[in-house]
């Protein structure tokens, strides 16, 4: 799914990486726990989270995640957005909470991502 589609489905506002909305994501993962993200995520995933701090960006960078959606209307601070830009990530915020955000994307065909690294 293209990130521009994600944006539309979630009625999201783009905070960083507007120029990369053409990018494809193949799966998604929703969590507020960064250690779970580090345990489960695969390539080219979209991360949905209600946690907003710099470690979300750093965690994403470690996992090669290039797109993040902050849910329930949480807006990242300027320094968080800057860090994301540095890593060429797309960051969006949506007013929906985590469950409906994931549900809407799932219904639109974006599959989950839970294959564990062994």
């Amino acid at each position: 799914m293209k990130l521009s589609e994600v944006k539309e489905i979630l009625n999201a506002e783009v905070v960083a990486g507007e120029e990369f909305l053409d990018r494809e994501v193949k799966s998604a993962f929703g969590s507020d726990l960064m250690s779970d993200v580090l345990a489960f995520v695969k390539d080219q995933a979209l991360l949905l989270t209600g946690l907003v701090n710099g470690q979300v960006i750093r965690t994403a960078e470690m996992m090669d995640i290039k797109a993040i959606v902050f849910v329930r209307g949480k807006k990242p601070t300027e320094d968080i957005a800057e860090l994301a830009k540095e890593y060429q990530m797309v960051v969006m915020t949506t007013d929906y909470t985590l469950y409906p955000s994931c549900g809407k994307l799932y219904c639109a065909g974006l599959v989950p991502n839970e294959e564990r690294v062994d």
Binding site: L33, S35, D36, L38, L51, V56, R116
Partner: peptide, 16 residues
């Protein structure tokens, strides 16, 4: 609150 403390770190390190 910072998103850590799930007790997954050491098992993750072992796995990776």
């Amino acid at each position: 609150e910072l998103g850590f403390g799930a007790g997954m770190g050491l098992p993750n390190m072992k796995r990776y």
